[in-house]
């Protein structure tokens, strides 16, 4: 927060072609500036600060490509997470210009030429842009018992699985697309104020198992998990989760559904 360092790209990068096409907000070949939050909580005396890196916009450049280029050519100490680079693993979520999203699916031309990057809030900060979403997600899954609670017979692997309507299977698949990137939690004003709030990811998981006929839990059981002010009743319907979800999950619908079901237990 205190100092800003500007690191220039090495001059080995080729000059922009005269035919550089303007394919989005930022033309190929022009300079972009990545302002990254630098902070290492493990290092005594480390103070959060912004550091600026300049590089050249290339065709189809994503933040994944940009950050790797910065690490390879300018600053090997910059910490960030990537695994799949295809929006599947959910590792690369970060705050891009103030909003959480997956860096690998963000084209620099759409968010540049000045791109501000920060780590996701709420989650444990590892360093710079890297956060431990896994720890939070595991804790939430354990707290919400977010796994299928079937009957004992279902554990017989030689037995045929119960049939399910294709429409229902599709609904379940839709909710299973969640990659636990943490964007919904980082975008949530309630989660920012109240660290124990389960967040949209937690509620969507419960909604998913409630839909699943193989899960034998009742609404009374689910109420035990999310029927609190840290659960579904804590949600203030700000809906940033729905708006930022990189997988476009129907979070608004699922949270409203769960709220109706859990509120129905109020006098039951």
């Amino acid at each position: 927060m205190t100092t800003t360092t500007i690191v220039k790209a090495p001059s080995t990068t080729p000059a922009p072609s005269a035919t550089a096409a303007r394919s989005g907000g930022v033309a190929t070949g022009t300079k972009i500036r990545v302002h990254a939050l630098r902070y290492n909580p493990q290092e005594p005396g480390s103070v959060p600060r912004m550091q600026t890196y300049e590089l050249e916009q290339s065709e189809g450049m994503t933040l994944f490509i940009a950050l790797n280029e910065i690490r390879e050519t300018q600053d090997p100490t910059l910490q960030f997470d990537f695994v799949c680079r295809a929006g599947i693993c959910g590792s690369c979520a970060m705050m891009v210009n103030g909003r959480p999203t997956l860096a690998c699916r963000t084209l620099t031309r759409d968010v540049g030429p000045d791109i501000t990057l920060a780590p996701l809030p709420v989650f444990e900060l590892i360093g710079d842009l890297s956060v431990n979403t896994g720890k939070w997600m595991r804790g939430t899954s354990e707290r919400l018992q977010a796994w299928l609670h079937g009957d004992a017979k279902a554990r017989d692997i030689n037995r045929l699985e119960e049939r399910m309507e294709p429409e229902l299977a599709e609904q379940l698949n839709e909710l299973d697309r969640c990659v636990e990137c943490g964007c919904c939690v980082a975008s949530c004003g309630t989660a920012r104020m109240r660290p124990d709030f389960v967040g949209a990811v937690g509620m969507a998981k419960i909604a998913r198992f409630r839909l699943d006929p193989r899960d034998k839990r009742t609404d009374d059981d689910y109420y035990e998990l999310v029927g609190t002010d840290d659960g579904v009743f804590g949600c203030m319907s700000l809906l940033a989760c729905h708006d930022v979800c990189p997988k476009d999950l129907p979070l608004q619908t699922q949270i409203a559904f769960l709220r109706r079901k859990m509120a129905g237990k109020g006098w039951a």
Partner: peptide, 15 residues
């Protein structure tokens, strides 16, 4: 402080 800071960077209408 958390909410105000969050609101300012998010620039999200419903927030």
């Amino acid at each position: 402080q958390m909410y105000r800071g969050h609101m300012k960077v998010m620039k999200h209408e419903d927030t």
